[in-house]
């Protein structure tokens, strides 16, 4: 497993050697920051109106739920754009530099390669999400009382959603000729997964259940509400395992000429 760490570390640093990593961080933080500010401002408006008008109309709608619930749900959408950019490099880049052939002849297993690639992306994603904690601390610093439980679950949910999307991206990257194709196809697949939620909304009967069960957003939504449901957690674990398995299969075939 040490090899996976070496690979993961190389990939992590390679995000910062090119502009990809820096730009991804920058845009993610700016957009997330704007979302949060808008939410805090609109919450302030709402609560002011509420205090003027009939008293208890907003009592049930706590700060945490209103601001952070929506915040996590919205930045979940950013992932659809972000993940293709993070994952496109994983295998497609190695293939372009013909270094994948080298990796296959070094003394470790295919699984260690896949795991290393996956960890590398997760590490970067981790770095990307850490400033969210700063945002939370900032809102807390405004003197508002927060409910920490739902925030922690929201954060966990966001992290699980990111990992799941990245595992899908990893798989697409492993079967793509080049980065551009990888990014476009990953984006398309993520979009389809995103749309599943709407499909679940308009379908009826058991189909609605079926699509809802497949939709990552449905499962994520529970987390943003501060609900921890074991089935959501299991769903994300399966999602990851499934795509890691497919990736492993894809690189085991070695069916390219190069």
């Amino acid at each position: 497993m040490k090899n996976s760490w070496v690979l993961a570390w190389k990939d992590l640093t390679s995000y910062f050697r090119s502009w990809t990593g820096v730009l991804a961080c920058f845009f993610f933080l700016v957009i997330a920051g704007v979302f949060l500010s808008l939410l805090v401002i609109s919450f302030a408006h709402l609560s002011m109106e509420a205090s003027r008008g009939p008293a208890d109309s907003f009592q049930g709608l706590g700060l945490t739920r209103f601001v952070f619930g929506s915040f996590f749900l919205n930045i979940g959408t950013i992932l659809i754009f972000l993940v293709p950019i993070l994952s496109m490099r994983a295998f497609a880049e190695e293939r372009r530099h013909q270094t994948l052939e080298l990796l296959f002849t070094y003394p470790f297993s295919d699984f260690e390669i896949v795991w290393g690639k996956y960890l590398g992306m997760i590490f970067f994603f981790q770095i990307l999400t850490l400033p969210i904690l700063f945002f939370v601390w900032f809102v807390h610093g405004l003197g508002l009382t927060l409910d920490w439980g739902p925030i922690a679950f929201g954060f966990l949910g966001f992290w699980l959603l990111g990992c799941a999307y990245l595992s899908l991206g990893l798989f697409i990257s492993s079967i793509s000729e080049n980065q551009v194709i990888s990014a476009i196809v990953t984006f398309g697949c993520l979009l389809i997964f995103w749309i599943l939620e709407w499909v679940a909304g308009v379908a009826d009967g058991s189909w609605a259940h079926f699509f809802a069960a497949l939709s990552p957003i449905r499962h994520y939504r529970d987390f943003t509400f501060g609900i921890f449901d074991m089935s959501d957690f299991v769903y994300f674990c399966f999602f990851n395992l499934y795509f890691l398995f497919l990736t492993l299969r894809a690189i085991e075939t070695r069916n390219w000429k190069g």
Binding site: S14, R17, S18, R96, H97, Q98, T99, E101, L102, G258
Partner: peptide, 9 residues
């Protein structure tokens, strides 16, 4: 290997 570009960065 026959063709090898290595990591340019």
């Amino acid at each position: 290997p026959e063709t090898l570009n290595l990591y340019p960065d």
